[in-house]
Design a protein around this nucleic acid. Structure first.
Lengths: 194, 194
DNA sequence: GTCTATACTGTGATAGAC
DNA sequence: GTCTATCACAGTATAGAC
């Protein structure tokens, strides 16, 4: 990697494009990102965007990676997990996840609902999402929950809370408040110890 | 309502359009429904579609209503609910729902993920969905679960199972098999009786 | 009433001049 | 690298034949 002045400038422009794309996605909807207005927001012409991204799908792909990186940072920020009880760490993790989803509907749709017709994350982009999933698997393992069935039930429960929250009370806390009861319910049958 | 021969023919054509639209949605994806190929599949020209539907959104709207009607019929078909225990009826209801979602990804996306950019169900169409929700609320009420919190937790749990199943193991049973454990988990803290 | 023909606008993407 | 011009396709509107 040379990372000279040219490459740095190029990376800065790519970041600016993605930032503008997020802004449009939040105000117009995820599917409302179109190349010409996106370019106009940056004072450039639409074809110039293709100098930085191979196409619209590549832009979604980069946004997908950014979103997953943001999620990882958020989840890692609450990792005083070692000093917490199993229940406390599950509550903290689930709450952080639901809050993350609830902050930005467009981001939630891109990351978890694959809401763009015909678009799928590339293999490398998807790998970042898998890493995140692996982190939460490791978290559950650390508190003694290792069975695939238990992990699947946990992901269903947490993703269900998040999707209901985002879809039916965006920005509110109607399902966010259910994180604690949900964790207690989950632990009551998983027999969580520690 | 006259419902003469003309009106009947008209209704039959509308049904044919919707059927063709479902077929395209299942093979090309929900967002892959476009007017010209849709018309071609029926041996007509694209503008002719506008004789039957105000536009593409109106077609999605009618599909949304059809999907919700299908869901209602499915859920009502298993309503020997009175003769079941609370646990049995919850298992039957949740299993029927997850199976329904798992049968047709395009239908699931249309009904529950609002996956079409810029499209929202009309008020009348949404009312049909609300009726379905009301049916399951009544079901839970009949077995003594009345609190909003409990209902919200139930919808999160069941919709989470369905979305994980559809997204990560479409057509399979990885999360479908978790319906029974999920119901037991739910009842263990709701203290379901009867 | 229902169709075909045509055209307008917006989309993602490309070619080639500078 | 960035532009203008352009293409193929989308949804949609209108005109008018039958």
């Amino acid at each position: 990697m040379t990372t000279g002045r040219v490459a740095a400038r190029r990376a800065a422009t790519k970041d600016a494009i993605l930032e503008a794309a997020w802004e449009i996605a939040r105000s117009e909807g995820l599917g409302g990102v179109s190349m010409r207005p996106l370019a106009a927001a940056l004072g450039m012409s639409a074809p110039s965007l293709y100098e930085y991204f191979a196409g619209k799908d590549a832009i979604y792909d980069a946004m997908y990676v950014q979103g997953n990186h943001a999620l990882r940072e958020r989840m890692q920020a609450i990792t005083d997990l070692d000093r917490m009880s199993a229940r406390e760490s599950l509550v903290a993790g689930a709450r952080a996840f639901v809050e993350f989803c609830n902050e930005d509907r467009a981001r939630f749709q891109l990351l978890f609902q694959h809401s763009i017709p015909g678009w799928h994350p590339s293999e490398q982009a998807y790998a970042v999402a898998i890493e995140n999933l692996e982190l939460s698997r490791a978290h559950l393992e650390s508190i003694g929950i290792t069975h695939t069935r238990s992990l699947d039930l946990w992901t269903a429960l947490v993703s269900g809370l998040a999707s209901q929250q985002v879809a039916n009370d965006p920005g509110g806390d109607r399902w966010l408040r259910l994180v604690e009861p949900a964790v207690d319910m989950f632990l009551s049958t998983e027999g969580g110890t520690k």
